[in-house]
């Protein structure tokens, strides 16, 4: 297993190099020039040329890429061309926010979504099953953007008005306290929760039809043990895969949620940087997101072995 993990970590190196290479070249193909964005719309062509020179953008792209790689290996991701702040500090400030939000929303969605899926599968076609799956369909279909604004209006405007409170129940935007996390977590969890509930239900239904479940029941095991020890554990592998993928995606930032709630995460940083053609920030953010994806996938693979004794990596 340890060999497997080391092998996977070594394999991550070409993945990261490939991603860096792809991002570096592709953003330079996108029309638009950071020098224009920095110098401003009133800048003369001479000033724009000077800014390009200062940023090193007048060098051939392969030279720029070599310099970028050299600096990145030394731990220097460069500075934001917009703010002049080191990219590593920009990312360091936002990454904990992104991790917090991603983790909180996945925990919330798993706590609610998975039990709903299990219960629905044990009582298929019951009123609970129909109701919860309709609810899940709603969760998948509801735009996060809209849900976010509705939550904000409810907790910050309507509820204080109905309860005659002096201020909002929850602060509508920003970060820094647990209260700031509640609404973005709910908004983000709604979608994941719905997917997890539907996925769990489908997997459980399939497992519950297997012969070994019938055998377990035939030998007189109580239903709770049949469901949780024999069926649920085996249904978990695809569920864990989905949760892993969701976590990886959320590391890339929940751009809409972060924008609506002014949550300072990686996704918003990346979108802002793309709009400004802030090459160092785009490169740095995508590198970190790629690392996150690679590690999450590794964790999911290790979890397979933990959940299913038949899985061996040696």
């Amino acid at each position: 297993m340890i060999n497997y993990i080391i092998r996977r970590l070594l394999l991550a190196i070409p993945v990261l190099l490939g991603a860096s290479f792809f991002v570096f070249w592709s953003i330079r193909w996108v029309p638009g020039d950071p020098a224009v964005a920095i110098a401003g719309e009133l800048a003369t062509p001479e000033l724009i040329a000077q800014v390009r020179e200062q940023l090193g953008l007048d060098e051939p792209v392969h030279v720029q890429f070599s310099m970028y790689l050299f600096r990145t290996f030394q731990g220097d991701m460069g500075k934001s061309v917009k703010t002049g702040v080191p990219v590593s500090s920009e990312i360091a400030r936002r990454l904990p926010n992104t991790l917090q939000l991603a983790a909180a929303s996945l925990v919330l969605s798993a706590i609610i979504g998975i039990p709903i899926g299990v219960f629905s599968a044990t009582k298929p076609n019951s009123w609970f099953d129909g109701g919860s799956m309709t609810f899940a369909l709603l969760g998948v279909s509801m735009p996060i953007f809209w849900l976010g604004l509705m939550l904000m209006i409810f907790f910050a405007v309507l509820l204080p008005k109905w309860l005659d409170l002096p201020g909002p129940v929850l602060p509508p935007t920003g970060s820094g306290t647990w209260k700031h996390m509640v609404m973005p977590t709910i908004a983000l969890a709604a979608n994941s929760m719905a997917i997890q509930a539907r996925m769990t239900r489908a997997c459980m239904l399939e497992v519950l039809r297997q012969d070994y479940i019938r055998t377990a029941r035939a030998k007189g095991l109580i239903e709770r043990l049949v469901i949780y020890r024999h069926a649920f554990r085996n249904a978990l592998i695809p569920i864990v895969t989905v949760i892993g993928l969701q976590f990886g995606t959320l590391l890339g930032g929940a751009v809409l949620t972060e924008t609506v709630f002014a949550w300072p995460g990686i996704g918003r940083l990346l979108v802002e940087a793309i709009g400004f053609r802030d090459y160092p920030v785009i490169q740095g953010a995508i590198l970190v997101i790629t690392v996150g994806f690679v590690l999450t996938n590794l964790l999911v693979d290790v979890l397979y072995a933990y959940l299913d004794p038949r899985v061996h990596y040696d």
């Binding site: 400030r93 904990p96 590690l295």
Partner: peptide
């Protein structure tokens, strides 16, 4: 692996404390 993940992704701490924008 969990420790590795948290070390790599969570090692970074905010450069300055987040403002209390309550």
């Amino acid at each position: 692996v969990l420790v590795l993940l948290s070390l790599v992704l969570g090692a970074c701490q905010p450069a300055t404390p987040a403002p209390d924008d309550t």
